[in-house]
Design a protein around this nucleic acid. Sequence first.
DNA 1: TTCCCCATCTGGCGCGAGTG
DNA 2: CACTCGCGCCAGATGGGGAA
Length: 286
Amino acid sequence: MGGALLQATGSVTSVLRRTFQILSGVGEKTEQKLWQRGITTWSDLREAGDDRLPGRVQRRREAHEDQLAMAEHHLADDHTAPFDRWLPDREIWRILQEAGDRVMYLDIETTGLSYPEGRATVVGAHTDAEGTQLLVRGQDLSSRAVQDLIDDAACLVTFNGRRFDVPWLEREFDVSVDVPNVDLMYAFRRLDITGGLKSIEKQLGLDRGEEIDDVGGYEAVKLWRRWERGNHDALERLLTYNEADVVNMQPLADIAYERLKAEVYDPHEPDDPQAQQAEIPVEDAG
DNA sequence: TTCCCCATCTGGCGCGAGTG
DNA sequence: CACTCGCGCCAGATGGGGAA
């Protein structure tokens, strides 16, 4: 990764600190315009003279300074939650780097597709900080345990979790999930890669263990029933399956992050070597 | 300064899609 | 199998920037 050269060119500044879409009146286009003018980080924006800013950004300078101060303040305290509200949904992935080893890969198993007919059987989570934790119904799965799990996360990574896993946990366990959620399903769809979790793993050439390669979603339901009837191996298999899901989401998230980053920084247009932004010397006329 | 055109932001509506 | 969320599309509002 980055050495002195990368630092000199500013490449170590995180994606989030180059993100202007958290500011009022700034969308995708205005952000691109700022980047093109050489204003690529929050500090660039604060230091830039009005003559370098689009009018709509000039007019909002005070509001933007407040918003940036707020953002810096929360980042300093490792509070990522507010960015869930400030960022447009499709750009939530930009906080992954800030979440660091508190990115939590989350996946649940249930006895059906809808609540309350179905119940959660396994809640699996993985972070680099805490490793893998699997909460099992009838053993250590409780509202308290789920809330504690969520509270350790600076950011969730799920697959279809915005519609399935997270609302389910909120309803069955009455937990509040006040943390950004990067849903890989939408991230990959934006990259023109569609399909379920296992299909996408295949498309990207990620192999999971041979022994659980054939386990699908409905199989998880049947495994739980077999465990309830006294088959100990069935639970072992279900847990292995769930753990594989949460662990495999990590490389998946890495790939999505790198590709989205590339897409955002190099919009599809053929790059024109002449299009370098002119250097505008910052000097005080004294 | 003022006018006008068009780029951009915002909000509402309907559709398609993967979860155990 | 039910559940909803993101996105594309459309229309209206706002405001930027060129020219007189």
